[in-house]
Structure formats: structure tokens, C-alpha cells
Amino acid sequence: MADLFTIESIGNLVVLIFLQAVLGFDNLLYISIESARAPLDQQRAVRRWGIVIAVTLRIVLLFAMLHLLEALAEPWFHFDWTGVIEGAFTFSTLVFLAGGAFIMYTAVKEITHMLSMDHLHEAPDVEKTRTTAGAVIAMIVLMNLVFSFDSILTAIAITDVFPVLAISILASGAGMLLLADSVSEFLRKNRKYEVLGLFILLIVGVALLGEGGHEAHLKLFGYAVEPLSKTTFYFSIAVLVAVDLVQSGYQKRLDAERAREQARRD
């Protein structure tokens, strides 16, 4: 515990809390969107229990990784089909690749569901009861652990002092608990931003696939898989948000102009 109260540890703790907050944005977005699949009267409890269980397991994962990092870094298997597929896959790369693929699948599935408009013609309770609260909590916990790998590996590169790492994770969990209901309520009242959130998750999935492929030194048909840089990632999100805001403002002006035109004709 003496290591916790050094100037270096306090500085690392501040950096890690900021890092966890930034990297936790996509996690919070996923939680807010996924919890909407639970029964309406259980959604708040689903978010809270999902976050609490996920944060607890994240600390367990952190403890395990600090002791097993060297073993987890060893490749589990290789592909060496020159010109087709090459790479060495560790536990962490498999988590990144599987998590990225699943997030992309979830985002595409939800976007397709929205475009079909079927949910507008369903009975009011059908959409809310088609997935049990337990299943949603399990999915939130699972995907939280996937998101955790990136942040935990980055955090361990900064410090290996367990109390500092654990406090930063607890602070991140507390922040998610405080903001989860607000974010979910905002998305519920502004459904168009749910589409924006799904496209952001799609980019997150691409980033995880790139990270996993890069760590595995994966080559497909002779081309190396490159990671999506953090700068490109955040710039892409900023562009998506900017386009959505500009389009919304432009649409409002068009609607107002059409309303004035219709009033003059009447």
C-alpha cells in the first residue's frame, strides 16, 4: 500500500482515471443501447447490475492479467498459409477479434432492424419483453470485459501497482453508474441519436478488429492488418457527430421553410 501514496502513483492514478473515462465512452454507449432490449420496468436495474458485476469481474481480470501476462502473451496457435492467411494468435488477440466481430454484428443487426421499421408495428410490450433481463445483464458483462482488455493492457503499460489500477477501475465504474441512466434516457427521447450511437459502435468494432489483427501480425492475402489509430478513431466519431448535428439543423430549417411556403399558399 505504500506504493499508493507516492507522487508517481498519484500522478498515474489521475492519468488512468482520465484514460478509463475516455475509453469507457463506447462501453457506456453499448450498455445504454443493449439495456433497451430488457423489459421496460427492469432496464434501470439491468444497467446497474450489469455495471456492478462487470466492474467486479474487471478487477478480477486485472489481478489475473498482472500475474498471467507473460503466459497470455504466448501464441496459442499459428496460421502460416503464405499469401492467404498468416498470423500468431494469443488470448488477447482472440478476445479483440471475437469482440470486434460481435460488436459489428450487433450494430449491423440493430441498424437493419431500424430500417425495416417492423418495430413500429409491433405491440407496445413485444419489443421490450423479447429479451430477458438476465440475458441482457450477461451480454453487458461479457462485452464490458471485451472493452476492458484494451483499457487494462494500456493501464498496465503505465503502472503495475494493483491498488492504483483498481481505484481507476472503480472510479470508471462509479462514473458509468452515474451517467448510464441519463445516457439511456437521452437516447430514448432522441431516437435518431441511437442510430448515431450504433454507427459509433460499428467503428469501435472495426477498431477492435484492427487492434487484434495487428497484435496477431495477421496478413490476409499478403496484406497486413493495420490498427486504427486513436486519432483517426476519434476524428471519425467527431465527423459522425458533426454530420448528424449539421443535418439535423438543416432539416429543421427546411421543415420551417416548407411550413412557411404552405402557410402562404393557404
Rank of each mutant, 00 (worst) to 15 (best):
L97F: 07
F96C: 03
H121Q: 08
L94R: 02
T93L: 05
L94Y: 05
L120H: 13
H119Q: 10
A98I: 15
T112H: 09
F102W: 10
D118N: 12
S92L: 11
A123I: 00
E122K: 14
E122Y: 07
I111L: 15
L97H: 07
S116L: 02
L115R: 14
H119W: 11
V95R: 06
L115D: 13
A101D: 05
D118F: 01
F102D: 03
A101R: 00
H113V: 00
A107V: 02
H121A: 11
E110L: 10
D118L: 01
E110K: 13
T106E: 11
T106D: 07
M117D: 08
S92R: 12
G100R: 04
I111R: 01
H119P: 01
L97D: 04
I103E: 01
L97T: 05
T106V: 10
L97G: 06
A101H: 02
A107R: 04
L115Q: 11
I103C: 03
H113Y: 08
M114W: 08
K109T: 10
M104L: 15
S92G: 04
H119R: 12
K109M: 07
V95Q: 06
T93Q: 09
M104A: 15
T93D: 13
M117C: 00
F96T: 09
T112I: 03
V108N: 01
G99W: 03
G99E: 05
I111S: 04
M114I: 14
A123H: 13
E122S: 08
L120T: 09
I103Y: 02
S92C: 00
A123V: 01
L115T: 04
Y105H: 10
L94I: 15
A101V: 09
V95H: 06
E122I: 00
H121I: 02
I103K: 02
A101M: 07
A101F: 12
L115I: 11
S116G: 07
D118E: 14
A98D: 02
H119A: 11
L97W: 07
L94K: 00
T93A: 15
E110G: 00
L115W: 12
H113A: 15
H121G: 04
S116A: 11
M114Y: 12
V95D: 06
A123M: 12
A98V: 15
F96H: 10
M104D: 06
L120E: 15
S116K: 12
D118H: 14
H121L: 10
T112M: 10
T112D: 13
A98T: 15
A123G: 14
A98S: 14
T106Q: 11
G100Q: 03
A98P: 02
A101Q: 02
I103T: 12
I111Y: 02
S116W: 03
H119F: 11
T93G: 11
V108E: 03
A107C: 04
T106A: 06
H119N: 07
A123C: 00
F102Q: 04
F96W: 09
E110A: 13
L115Y: 12
A107L: 04
M104K: 01
L115P: 00
A101L: 15
L120D: 10
L120M: 14
Y105G: 13
V108Y: 09
F102R: 03
V108T: 08
E122A: 10
T112Y: 04
M104P: 04
H113L: 10
T106P: 00
V95C: 07
L94M: 15
E110M: 10
M114N: 06
H119S: 12
F102T: 09
D118M: 01
E110Y: 02
